[in-house]
């Protein structure tokens, strides 16, 4: 039922892993990209992600329909986003700190309400078999690509187009780059940021639903290993470009697949160090691409994290 593909398993596992593992990063990064482009930073997406994972799983289990679960996760995520967006408009409320607080609250609520859903098995999101042309089962398995991957890739493109070509994109960019200019143009800054943060939360919720409904595909308290926080780093080195977010997420996912893949071909010494590869890679890229002299290229001018 399977062919011996030996060392070819490593690149294949990295490719397949990149696709499988990257999807939550992709959705969170796109959501954060949108929020940050409007001039706010939401560090609380880790909490939103985990809550989305719980909500998606619970709803999928209760309704028997994973797509309803995804929609529910998106709704839950948008509520977290709305709250963050609303509360940060008050003078003196720091968006970074509030994000950390929301992360804690999101995790707490997810674990609190998720207790009863650790045991049940909820229906999973379907994957599209794109590898049927191949006789090699490993390639078939690698190309069992979840539907959300295509949704995410499409969203990245759509968002890129939106920022470049549409009035909505322009409004978000102006609000994010200069509050004064936006005010002069009569834009409602708070509302734009509120909506951008809510949309970012919704996307993050979908990323969470992917964790619990697709891969690894079950709900427990250790379901996320910091994807929500890492995605914020990905946005920075993706330079706030949705297309670059897509590649950054893939790169990060592939690096994460490296450790298990190497062990599967017998390279097992120092696996903790291989497992740290995604973090080392991200940090190295951040160091290489940052600059102390000028504000980051592509950075929204209003963003507190780059000031």
């Amino acid at each position: 039922m399977s062919a011996d593909i030996g060392l070819w398993g490593v690149p294949l596992a990295i490719l397949a892993g990149a696709i499988r593992v990257s999807i939550p990063f992709l959705f969170v990064a796109l959501g954060e990209c949108l929020t940050e482009r409007s001039g706010r930073i939401n560090l609380g997406l880790e909490g939103t992600l985990v809550f989305g994972a719980m909500a998606g799983y619970a709803i999928s289990y209760e309704t028997g329909n994973p797509f309803v679960g995804v929609a529910g996760a998106a709704l839950a995520g948008s509520l977290f986003g709305l709250f963050h967006g609303w509360i940060c408009k008050f003078r003196g409320v720091n968006d970074i700190a509030m994000g950390i607080a929301m992360m804690l609250l999101g995790l707490g609520l997810a674990f609190y309400f998720g207790k009863g859903y650790i045991q049940p098995v909820a229906p999973d999101l379907p994957a599209i078999p794109l590898g049927n042309w191949s006789d090699i089962p490993q390639i078939r398995a690698a190309l069992q690509i979840n539907i959300l991957f295509f949704v995410g890739a499409g969203l990245a493109l759509a968002m890129w187009w939106m920022f470049r070509q549409t009035r909505v994109g322009l409004v978000i960019r102006v609000v994010g780059d200069s509050a004064d200019a936006a005010r002069a143009m009569g834009m409602n800054i708070d509302r734009v940021r509120l909506l951008a943060t809510a949309a970012g939360g919704a996307l993050t919720g979908v990323g969470g639903a992917y964790l619990s409904l697709a891969y690894p595909g079950s709900w427990n308290e250790g379901i996320s290993s910091g994807q929500g926080l890492m995605a914020v780093a990905l946005v920075i080195f993706a330079r706030w470009s949705p297309i670059a977010c897509f590649w950054a997420a893939l790169l990060f996912g592939g690096a994460g697949a490296l450790g298990p893949a190497l062990q599967s071909v017998g390279v097992s010494d120092g696996y903790y160090l291989f497992y740290a590869a995604p973090y080392v890679l991200t940090l190295a890229l951040l160091i290489l691409t940052s600059s102390p002299e000028r504000a980051l290229r592509g950075a929204p001018g209003e963003l507190s994290i780059t000031k």
């Binding site: 892993g17 690894p216 595909g217 379901i223 290993s225 994460g256 450790g259 298990p260």
Partner: peptide
């Protein structure tokens, strides 16, 4: 969870 799934794959 994610690492266990990757290892299994």
């Amino acid at each position: 969870a994610v690492k266990e799934a990757e290892a299994t794959n």
